[in-house]
Design a protein around this nucleic acid. Structure first.
Length: 322
DNA sequence: AACTTCTTCAACCGCAACATT
DNA sequence: GAATGTTGCGGTTGAAGAAGT
């Protein structure tokens, strides 16, 4: 015998909220607070809604200072960084992004960010990319007045959501150097900007490797031979490329054996779909078949058959801006 | 213009953790 | 300590609108 449902489903309204319901709920909570009991709340207000539904509506939509859509590069970077480090713990990730809800981030990840990472661009994104290419071709052809890349608005909002031209791999922002598992360690994790520092603190709190999501010094490309297996938590850092298209990457501190084991297990469970980042799964994975969104340089690399073990390597900040 | 397919996101569901009795 | 109630979380669904054919 299961537990009693939180509310009588027969007498409870479901589906989209009406403006009247929103107004009722919002004004009541603003005046009286939730009273510490969501279940009783709809009865007090006279709403035919489940308490859970009221809570969700308030937290995800009615609460003040909620932002919808328009994820910035910085937010993308934080989301990716934390997802790689802690998995789909959306509430924790949301806590690092003021004004964002876990539901919003979860939706954004599932519908946009994940697809970008794995090269499944939406039609919308494909179109935008095509437009940008056309723009660049036109610029290259001489009418260089077009500055498509400048379309991201001054508020720092994401041009994607705003319908502006945006191409993931033509912006600096996210750089997740990713290695197969056999990668030599490079010492030290550089503590970068405030965001990285706060992520580091968060990861430390969560009991993980605080350097896992941190930028660090440049490192050499991974060797083509097998090293002793070691798990490298990926890190996220937007570092400027060296001149001539050279790559910079980050690395992480080695994890103690036990932590290594746990981290590996944890990530296996949590990072569903990110196996390729960790050299797990199909060993025949060819890096240059990962989306150019993930390995931007691969567009060029694929023609020269150069293996690109780094993912989300950024391009020069001013690319396309000249 | 009509139909189909795809994308987005609000909302629901079930479960686990925590609190209260 | 067990039973019950509530909250919080993450996964999933489905309606609506956009885009493609």
């Amino acid at each position: 015998m299961g537990r009693a449902p939180c509310c009588d489903k027969a007498s409870v309204k479901k589906g989209p909220w009406s403006p009247e319901e929103d107004a009722k709920l919002k004004s009541y909570i603003e005046q009286n607070g939730t009273g510490g009991n969501w279940i009783a709340l709809p009865l007090k207000i006279g709403l035919k809604r489940c308490g859970k539904s009221c809570r969700l509506r308030w937290l995800n939509y009615l609460r003040p200072n909620i932002k919808h859509g328009g994820f910035s590069e910085e937010e993308d970077r934080i989301i990716l960084s934390l997802y790689i480090s802690i998995g789909s713990r959306w509430s924790i990730i949301a806590a690092q992004l003021p004004g964002r809800t876990d539901n919003d981030i979860k939706n954004y990840w599932n519908t946009r960010l994940k697809k970008k990472l794995f090269g499944k661009q939406s039609r919308k994104d494909q179109r935008q990319q095509q437009q940008q290419q056309l723009g660049r071709q036109a610029a290259a052809a001489g009418d260089g007045q077009i500055k498509q890349e400048a379309s991201r608005d001054a508020n720092g909002t994401d041009g994607l959501a705003a319908g502006a031209n945006y191409s993931w791999h033509h912006h600096q922002a996210m750089a997740v150097p990713v290695y197969p598992m056999s990668v030599p360690m490079v010492e030290g994790g550089r503590i970068g900007d405030d965001v990285d520092e706060s992520i580091r603190k968060l990861l430390f709190k969560l009991g993980g490797n605080p350097f896992a999501a941190l930028p660090s010094s440049p490192c050499m490309p991974p060797p083509m031979y097998e090293e002793a297996p070691c798990f490298v938590a990926p890190s996220v850092h937007a570092a400027p490329l060296s001149e001539g298209g050279g790559m910079q990457c980050s690395s992480a501190l080695p994890l103690p054996a036990l932590e290594l084991d746990e981290s590996f297990h944890f990530n296996q469970v949590k990072l569903d779909g990110l196996e390729c980042f960790f050299g797990m799964g199909d060993q025949s994975m060819r890096w240059n078949e990962v989306s150019p969104l993930v390995c931007p340089n691969n567009a060029a690399a694929s023609s020269s058959q150069v293996m690109q073990p780094y993912c989300l390597v950024e391009e020069p900040a001013d690319l396309g801006m000249q």
